[in-house]
Amino acid sequence: MFRKLAVYTPLTLFAAITLVPFLYLACSSLKTNDVFFSSPFLPIDSAWWDINWSGLTLDNFKRLFQEAGIGRAIVNSFFFASTMAVLGTLGSAMGGYALAKFNFLGRGMFTNIVLTALIIPGALLLAPGYKVLYTLGLLDSYAGLILPGVAPAFGVFLFRQAFVSGLPTEMMEAGRIDGCGEVRMFFQLALPMVRPMVGAFLLITYLGTWNNFIGPQIVLQTPEKYPLAVAVAQLRGPYGSEYGMIMAGTIVAILPVLILFLMLQKDFIAGLTAGSVKG
């Protein structure tokens, strides 16, 4: 009993400390501008227990949807995150599968190119990427944001490693003997063998895209196409910021993805630990 207490007391304490910023966020999103700076959490009058209830409001959330058009941004974020997660995972898995299981001319060179691409800083690709998107007529389009992320180097290499260790070549040969075609083999034989990796990568890409800020900022120009991260950033201004609305916007931005993460955390952990106990 004492041992449990000794372990769980500090853990609970640290967990509570990590929640303090979220508490600040939640309280701030409900405060009016007049009382925003009067106290860090709930608005108070003379002492910490004397809460000024008139300083609390849902207006920040209402204005967020009515004035800042955050509803559309939520849909856009769901669209970008899920579409890029699905296409990115599919593209990465296909690329990794090819590099891991097929012998073709230049396989080594392609693998090296993928590895080299991992070390190029993203900032270096801004201008050339912009130029390519312009040349292809993809600026300010959904495709301009999605296509460059369809086969990320990191994902291709990750799946290559997963297929090398998780998919026996003998199984593929057995499939071919049974008359299985290559496309079918990929979807019905290879992918299920790396299922934990599919789940984990899907979620990683989903979270990464949901939080992506720089890409949409540069590629998208029409306000109706902005995802949440960009739409919330628009609430900042040089002469001051709508603090209450920013806090409300942040809550709206993290809530859906938090719920999704809580639902899918088993997939995420399974993917990350896949292969970790292999002898």
């Binding site: 769901f78 669209f79 995150a81 997660a85 699905v86 979807f187 599919v198 997939d267 399974a270």
Partner: peptide, 29 residues
């Protein structure tokens, strides 16, 4: 067997949100 529940949910979100985005008109300027 082929997809975990999580992956299936993400695919469902992708399908639904794609339809919504495609049918929600954007003002041409």
């Amino acid at each position: 067997g082929y997809l975990s529940p999580g992956s299936a949910i993400v695919m469902l979100i992708a399908a639904v949100s794609t339809v919504v985005v495609l049918v929600w008109p954007i003002e041409k300027r």
